[in-house]
């Protein structure tokens, strides 16, 4: 038997009036235990005022086509995804420019499904990028590869950053393409 089925969606008619016994005699009240549940739709949406806080300069940099990273001043331990304070010494980090560092794919996937917000983007390639001389990785979108040809050979491949001309002040203001 085929397991094909139509996609279920919410929405539909507004119904006025719900079936209920005309009389609340004992038999009718007992029957209420056998009713199917009533389900209603509840809408919920909200706009947050989100602050990037101490990470804000990274977004300003990406808007100006500069890729920043943060570095512990003494040890030199460097974070590709910025951190205001180093996890080992607890000291405040400093900003460095890594725009022109050699970059390679550390790991990747092709997302054929996704969270609701990103479904229109599917299929898309998510990747973790290594920058030369940087200790941690950076999560990004990888553009310009044929997703149908996904292969472990992509790992280690050299890539380079590209920046959106019209910044959205999101980490996706930068993405990577094959070098």
């Amino acid at each position: 038997m085929s397991d094909a089925r139509r996609e279920e969606t919410l929405g539909g008619f507004v119904v006025h009036g719900v079936p209920f016994p005309v009389e609340t005699d004992p038999d009718a009240l007992a029957f209420l235990k056998r009713m199917t549940p009533i389900q209603i739709e509840q809408q919920y949406s909200i706009t947050y005022l989100h602050s990037y806080g101490q990470d804000s300069p990274w977004f300003a940099g990406a808007s100006n086509k500069k890729l920043l990273a943060s570095r512990e001043p003494d040890s030199g331990y460097t974070y590709a995804t910025p951190r205001g304070h180093d996890m080992y010494t607890g000291r405040e980090t400093e900003w460095i420019d890594v725009t022109d560092r050699k970059a390679t794919v550390h790991a990747f996937t092709v997302c054929y499904f996704g969270s609701e917000e990103f479904l229109p983007d599917t299929p898309f390639v998510l990747a973790l990028i290594e920058y030369e001389g940087v200790n941690t990785l950076f999560l990004t979108r990888l553009i310009g590869l044929d997703h149908t040809q996904a292969s472990l050979e992509w790992i280690g491949r050299e890539v380079q950053p590209r920046f959106l001309r019209n910044s959205k002040l999101k980490p996706t203001d930068v993405y990577f393409v094959p070098a």
Binding site: H50, Y52, D55, T81, H106, A107, F108, T109, C111, F113, G114, S115, E117, F118, D121, F124, L126, A127, L128, L139, T140, R141, L152, I155, K170, P171, T172
Partner: peptide, 21 residues
Amino acid sequence: VSWDYPVGGFYSGYYAMMVTR
């Protein structure tokens, strides 16, 4: 939500990256 979610937040994607490595 500053760094990971906006790139394409999807846990199946995160775990898939881990296993490709």
